[in-house]
Design a protein around this nucleic acid. Structure first.
Lengths: 232, 232
DNA sequence: CGACGATTTGAATAGGATCAATGGGAGTGG
DNA sequence: CCACTCCCATTGATCCTATTCAAATCGTCG
């Protein structure tokens, strides 16, 4: 890794409380690489080789079976992926590809495990990160098992709206086909779901959505902090 | 906890490599309790108070939203639940209730965290357990996003068949309404799914299922070890 | 301008949910 | 031991949701 990138990486939650020498050892073995958009980083079924940390850009996690494909989640800075596979020394359950030009830190598995053993602060950070990933998937799973497609879309819009500062306008962070897959529906169905939400003050203009009647939208969506909050 | 139960608990994967004194401290604070069937142990939204370890019996994890309810998973010996909430000091995302008379070890959160800090072997066991839970949910999520209801049922039957020794007969471990919820469908739909599988050699007699044509069933189900294997 | 991909719309279909009614044990109490 | 009840499971009919296939539209980029 280039020395110039060190401070940036050092300040990440995962590393900031690490011992200096352990951090140096970890970083010496790691690669900080920039990838173009739409590049496959890992494939499900492959044995875990590197822990991946997204520093810039965005990475899509997806999975395939029976000729179908589905987006499982999106990883933005500063998030890790395939942490569980690395810790268990198992194969990846999901594939990953960049959706934009992205900077990713790659740490060889053996170095992650060594640092985990040697550095208590790192171990604790890893555990919190993993626990956060676990809870994120549980929330996704609840979302899809307990809500209809329209409720999922409505809640997602409310969530993005909150993330973006409650301005009455939401910018979709991904293209609509990705949004559809993430929400567990087809692109056609997403388009129709937007139409269904029109009476609730949802106006679509490309990737910009205007929310003109939050009361009505909230009434339909019934947001639930045990599903929609990302932080807890 | 009664002294008589100590060796049993000590031999659990989670505790067996712990330091003697740390184990003693942990166990001294813990409760080993036996609960009757259908008893609620925790409710989603409550702050994490105890790590739960199922020693005997079976515990159902479920969640509610919008008046709907869904079974999220089943925990059998020796499994933990709500580990992530305990580690993050957050509220539970799921509720839990016994489905049979069950023996559960309850460890106060502060003692779990103390042991985690003090005992490296325990920390590693916790991380592996948590990583296993994470991967289990990811598999559930793939199952539901990538498969139809009938494929989910077929694969579940194949899995139980393998677990039970490939005798050509499968005993459903839960009643059908629970199976249905676990598989993300209504009881009516499960019943119809069984009928749909009849041409594939699936014969239902109460909770006993005979699988008479594994080749056909496998052809329909297309099992995938990245979804259906529990161990990896 | 032209081509390509993404999105939208329409029509038909399939998959699953809901509602209602029936059948079938397991357990209870007489 | 039997009748009764209750809950679970099944079945039928219908409705609703979502997928599929097809075609049209829109935008963007060469």
């Amino acid at each position: 890794m280039r020395t110039a990138d060190l401070p940036e990486v050092r300040s990440l939650g995962l590393f900031e409380s690490m011992d200096e020498s352990n951090f140096d050892a970890l970083v010496q073995a790691a690669y900080l690489q920039t990838f173009p958009a739409q590049l496959d980083l890992i494939a499900e079924g492959d044995p875990a080789d590197f822990l991946h940390v997204v520093i810039e850009g965005c990475v899509e996690l997806y999975a395939r079976a029976n000729g179908r494909e589905s987006t499982m989640g999106m990883v933005r800075p500063v998030g890790t992926f395939i942490l569980a596979a690395v810790l268990k020394d198992a194969v990846y359950l999901m594939s990953a590809r960049t959706c934009q030009k992205s900077k990713v830190l790659l740490i060889p598995v053996e170095d992650v495990r060594r640092a985990f053993r040697a550095d208590e602060a790192f171990a604790r950070a890893i555990v919190l990160e993993l626990a956060g990933c676990y809870r994120a998937v549980v929330k996704e799973h609840k979302d899809i098992k307990l809500r209809t497609a329209i409720e999922r879309l409505a809640n997602r819009l409310i969530r993005y709206h909150r993330d973006q500062g409650e301005t009455g306008r939401v910018e979709l962070p991904y293209d609509k086909r990705t949004m559809a897959s993430l929400l567990g529906m087809t692109p056609e169905n997403l388009s129709r779901a937007f139409n269904t939400l029109k009476p609730y003050g949802v106006d679509v203009d490309g990737t910009t959505i205007r929310l003109n009647d939050m009361k009505a939208l909230n009434g339909l969506a019934k947001p639930n902090h045990l599903i929609d909050d990302r932080t807890t």
